[in-house]
Amino acid sequence: MDQANPFVSTPRRDIQAGLRDIAPVAVAALPIGLLFGAIAAAKGMSTLEVMLMSALVFAGGAQFAAIETWIHPAPILTLAFATLLINARHVLMGASLTPKVRMSRVQTLLAYFFLTDEAWALSERRALERPVTGAYWFVMAVVLWANWTLSSTIGAILGSFLGSPERIGADFAFTALFIGLVAGFGKSRVTLVTVASSAAVAALVHYFIGAPWHVASGALAGIAAAYLAAPQEARS
């Protein structure tokens, strides 16, 4: 259908294209949401708190980082700073996508609440062929958002019945998940230097000074290492 007349873009076709593109992403994100909810519940968050965090923050990486270092009462400034560091990539993603979306300023301000790695990547791919319309963007956004909020809420409800996460190795699921996410950034020399520097500094700071200082110090060490390891004249 979509291929039949590539020059005509109707809302109906854009919605169909959005659903087709986002479906595999939503399926893959479902168990991750369940996992997030279950571990958050095991760390002492209520089901309502888990639901609110997923619905309002809607950023998996930042939420997993927050839960991994979760203590009670919540360290507000530390969490906000870690969130800023992890989500800073959104600035570049938004800057790159903005000339390619066919939406008004106000629509875009609403649309970008739903900006995720996945929706961004799919939209950049679609933008190679045609502009990204509001119909395409919002159908993807709403599916992913509802999927994440619901799956993490259900995970929180189920997780409160599971008991101690150590018993089934679930406490290590975060570590494994993060290792998987880091692998997605590739094996370039700069990335390896970044990972090694960040890991070494974070582990040392955690051992000698303690949480939560290891997050910011390790991250800054990794970023500085990338700056120094990168060739000075590299083209983007």
Partner: peptide, 20 residues
């Protein structure tokens, strides 16, 4: 150049620091 490399390094650097 280096500024872009530093910016691109933010996500892996933060993720690794959290789990190290």
């Amino acid at each position: 150049g280096r500024a872009k490399a530093a910016f691109d390094a933010i996500p892996p650097a933060v993720l690794v620091a959290v789990i190290a």
